[in-house]
Amino acid sequence: MHPDRHDTWVVIAAYNEGAVIRDVVLGVAREGWSVVVVDDGSRDDTADCARSAGVTVVRHAVNLGQGAALQTGIDFALRRGARHIVTFDADGQMAVEDIPVLIAALDAGADIALGSRFLGTVEGATRERMALLKTAVMMSNRMSGLELTDAHCGLRAFHAHVAPKVRMVQNRMAHASELLRKIKQSRLRVVEVPCTIRYTAHSMAKGQGGFQAVRILFDYFFRAAS
């Protein structure tokens, strides 16, 4: 259906997502994209569920964190000769239809394309969460020196040759800030693309609260300054 899509690898990091991972993976694979699921040492049947959808599963023997899982997926995709790499969430809050828009941005000359909830649409979020996200965007822009409309939307796409420049060493959630910092440092051409985020009860339960922000800041400033 889409012969040009097989060398675009969609990296999905999953931790205890057995309930939804199969549907998410099928949705992406049906569109013709290559998919690698990184099971970050889940204690449930995430790996089996993803395998049943017919995609490659790379499984961390121990839980390392989302940043480490994404980087493993990126490394794997590069080994398989990926031309574009897309990062996608496992919890079903992203829309598959946004992927071709990201790739189009890359083809139009961007080094890296980031999804933005605030240019697109957010469904099902509470007022408090939107306020928290807006604050995060302000803080994130201050820290990274970039001027973006969204901070850490997990939907991103970049060329394979850009991957070494945005290599993440932050194992947990601080990888998102690390990525933005590296975009700035390498002066990459970054484009924001509107995307749709649908918060569900499932994804909200696994989402980041204000409390985790302290942990993320600690990681960002005190860990692995490379």
């Binding site: 121990v62 390392l64 493993t72 194992n171």
Partner: peptide, 30 residues
């Protein structure tokens, strides 16, 4: 601690990718 954590990450990553490559040849028993 940070250094050891990064080594653990490297090891886990290598092992995970290696196992995925092996499973291409010998599919895992479901």
């Amino acid at each position: 601690f940070v250094e050891i954590e990064q080594k653990l990450t490297q090891l886990t990553r290598e092992l995970a990718i290696l196992r995925a490559e092996v499973e291409r040849v010998v599919p895992p028993a479901t």
